[in-house]
Simulated scan of single mutants.
Amino acid sequence: MGAPGQGVILKPDPPVVGKVTHHSIELYWDIHQALQRKGPSSQWLKFSIEEEDVKTRAYGTIYSGYSRQHVVEGLEPSTQYRFRLKVTGCNGEYEYSPIVAVSTTREPMSGEHLHRAVTMNDEPKVTSILQTGHVKADTPDKFGLSPLMVAAQKGYLRLVEILIDHGADVKQQDGSGKNCLMLACFSGHLDVVQYLRKQGASWESRDKGGCTAMHWAADGGHLKVIQWMITDGCEVDVKDNCSEWTPLMRVSAITGDPDVAQCLIKAGANVNAKDSDGKTPLMIATLNSHERLVRLLTEKGADCSIKNQYGISIMDMAKAFNRQNVVSILEEMKNKHS
Rank of each mutant, 00 (worst) to 15 (best):
residue 247 P to A: 13
residue 24 S to M: 09
residue 56 T to C: 08
residue 2 G to N: 06
residue 221 G to H: 05
residue 212 T to S: 15
residue 51 E to W: 08
residue 282 L to R: 03
residue 258 P to M: 10
residue 302 A to D: 00
residue 72 V to E: 05
residue 20 V to K: 09
residue 33 Q to L: 15
residue 111 G to S: 09
residue 203 W to E: 01
residue 305 S to F: 06
residue 221 G to T: 02
residue 157 L to N: 01
residue 217 A to V: 03
residue 289 S to G: 00
residue 160 V to Y: 08
residue 12 P to G: 09
residue 325 N to L: 08
residue 210 G to A: 10
residue 5 G to H: 08
residue 223 L to T: 05
residue 305 S to Q: 13
residue 331 E to Y: 09
residue 7 G to K: 11
residue 124 P to D: 05
residue 185 C to Q: 05
residue 77 P to F: 14
residue 266 K to T: 13
residue 25 I to K: 11
residue 337 H to E: 09
residue 196 L to T: 01
residue 229 M to V: 04
residue 231 T to L: 13
residue 214 M to T: 05
residue 80 Q to R: 14
residue 93 E to H: 14
residue 324 Q to Y: 04
residue 134 H to P: 00
residue 232 D to S: 15
residue 79 T to N: 03
residue 298 T to A: 12
residue 214 M to Y: 04
residue 74 G to Q: 09
residue 146 S to P: 00
residue 330 L to H: 01
residue 249 M to A: 09
residue 285 A to Y: 06
residue 124 P to Q: 12
residue 71 V to L: 10
residue 189 H to R: 13
residue 49 I to Q: 05
residue 48 S to I: 01
residue 22 H to L: 03
residue 269 A to I: 02
residue 132 T to W: 07
residue 189 H to C: 07
residue 276 S to R: 15
residue 16 V to Y: 01
residue 22 H to K: 03
residue 333 M to D: 04
residue 313 S to G: 12
residue 279 K to G: 00
residue 175 G to Q: 11
residue 32 H to F: 12
residue 321 F to V: 02
residue 105 T to V: 06
residue 22 H to P: 00
residue 84 R to F: 08
residue 190 L to S: 08
residue 203 W to S: 13
residue 321 F to A: 11
residue 142 K to Y: 07
residue 127 T to V: 08
residue 105 T to Q: 15
residue 166 H to Q: 02
residue 90 C to V: 02
residue 219 D to W: 14
residue 50 E to R: 12
residue 236 V to C: 06
residue 101 A to H: 02
residue 307 K to Y: 00
residue 120 M to N: 13
residue 139 T to N: 04
residue 54 V to Y: 06
residue 231 T to K: 15
residue 45 L to Y: 14
residue 4 P to W: 12
residue 101 A to I: 00
residue 104 T to V: 11
residue 295 R to E: 03
residue 126 V to D: 01
residue 115 H to Q: 04
residue 80 Q to M: 13
residue 249 M to R: 11
residue 17 V to F: 04
residue 98 P to R: 13
residue 15 P to L: 14
residue 66 Y to I: 03
residue 114 L to N: 03
residue 5 G to Y: 07
residue 213 A to E: 00
residue 279 K to A: 05
residue 325 N to C: 05
residue 120 M to C: 01
residue 210 G to R: 09
residue 24 S to H: 10
residue 241 N to L: 11
residue 161 E to F: 13
residue 183 L to R: 14
residue 238 V to W: 02
residue 309 Q to C: 08
residue 42 S to Y: 03
residue 258 P to T: 02
residue 303 D to E: 07
residue 311 G to Y: 09
residue 318 A to G: 02
residue 306 I to S: 06
residue 286 T to D: 03
residue 162 I to S: 02
residue 50 E to K: 14
residue 151 A to C: 07
residue 46 K to T: 10
residue 191 D to Y: 07
residue 134 H to W: 12
residue 187 S to N: 11
residue 177 G to D: 05
residue 45 L to M: 12
residue 170 V to T: 12
residue 102 V to E: 12
residue 124 P to E: 06
residue 144 G to C: 12
residue 273 A to F: 06
residue 137 A to F: 09
residue 96 Y to E: 02
residue 294 V to T: 06
residue 313 S to L: 08
residue 114 L to A: 09
residue 98 P to D: 15
residue 186 F to G: 03
